[in-house]
Design a protein around this nucleic acid. Sequence first.
DNA 1: CGGAAGCTGTCATACCGCTGTCACGTCCGG
DNA 2: CCGGACGTGACAGCGGTATGACAGCTTCCG
Lengths: 221, 221
Amino acid sequence: MRVLVVEDAVALAEVVAEGLRDQGMAVDVALDGLTAAAKLDVNAYDVVVLDRDLPGLSGDTLCEMITRRSERAMVLMLTAAGSADDRVRGLTLGADDYLAKPFHFPELVLRVRSLARRRPAATPRTLIVGDLELDPIRRTATRRGAGLNLSVKEFAVLEALMRAAPGYLSSEALLEQVWDENADPFTNTVTVTVGRLRRKLGDPAAIVTLPSVGYRIDGRH
Amino acid sequence: MRVLVVEDAVALAEVVAEGLRDQGMAVDVALDGLTAAAKLDVNAYDVVVLDRDLPGLSGDTLCEMITRRSERAMVLMLTAAGSADDRVRGLTLGADDYLAKPFHFPELVLRVRSLARRRPAATPRTLIVGDLELDPIRRTATRRGAGLNLSVKEFAVLEALMRAAPGYLSSEALLEQVWDENADPFTNTVTVTVGRLRRKLGDPAAIVTLPSVGYRIDGRH
DNA sequence: CGGAAGCTGTCATACCGCTGTCACGTCCGG
DNA sequence: CCGGACGTGACAGCGGTATGACAGCTTCCG
């Protein structure tokens, strides 16, 4: 899952980004509105965590820009002012959720996850493809009921592939969804991670390679 | 629109199925939970009309199985008990609508239609020409149900020809669509690739040559 | 503080199958 | 009988993919 954190207080931005990364998300940070707008043009985010007080472009303006798009990210607005009025104004601008500073970090994580889930309209709480089952919230994955011990990246790759099922994802698409913008575009870490994931999934092969095209979960089991 | 009726009372099942067929829907019937589960594995339904009292698997269990999937059908639960409690329980399990027996048939039709409308559009994602089937999303191709193991170019050629069917494509058109613009115009790689594709498709011949004109998929199989 | 263990990305390497070229054979119309 | 169009087998080059080894890093724990 790809997240953009827009927050001008560097310290806070980093704390939030790190925390979300611990949850296995690929997080980019923008310290002002203009940078944020540029990044939004280039990358496809699932959720934008947006501070309302921003240098450059105001959070409100940015929020409106985002929500006007058709394939838009979900917006979680952060604000210092927690009054009911502000809440209403924020939601009017199209923010999908609202969180007042100071906030409890676990709540932020919860809301980001729930926003991501809401995006392509009501995805179920657990992903099931063939004999694979994956719970994004509890961060558990099983095959034929047997628990899998996956690393953060492996889990994220499996989740992305299962969300795409029965479709496929190219290496580039995986790199974009699972890794953040600092990823070397010439890396072969996707290949390696898929390889390691395959080993942990065991037989029969659950991930099929479509040569020169990408990877796909085989749901026939 | 594809509908599955799961109901153990044969007479009722047939009446419902016939009535829905009169509305132009494609209706399958399952008389018990296990049969239903099997059919759900194989076919993609838009709506499942589900009796709660079932032999084999209970309606509740089946409903949970359906709603946990990602590309799921909408569920209309039928029940003898029409109490508010049951209604709540049913919806908790993920049923999308609820109808108490005995019901007026027009109401059933109405609800099925409305559920189908709520569903994110079952896209006809497969190309079908004769006995050939090609799924661009999953990147699979089959003939008479048997999977074909095609290379990138072969797949692209087959896809182009199937999209053109029942028309034809000239070698030049294929070269333009499948290969990039700086392809050697004097190459015979199209001929070769079509040849290899033919071999993988097997008998009877599915690609006919129109001498000096081009190639066409023969859809009569 | 120090060491063990796990995760992650890089690199080198081996391998496999796709791909385009070429040569040659065949078919068909003129 | 000739010529063009097409089919097909052989072949070599190349690119994509898998994988083991390794190093940097973090985390955990005594």
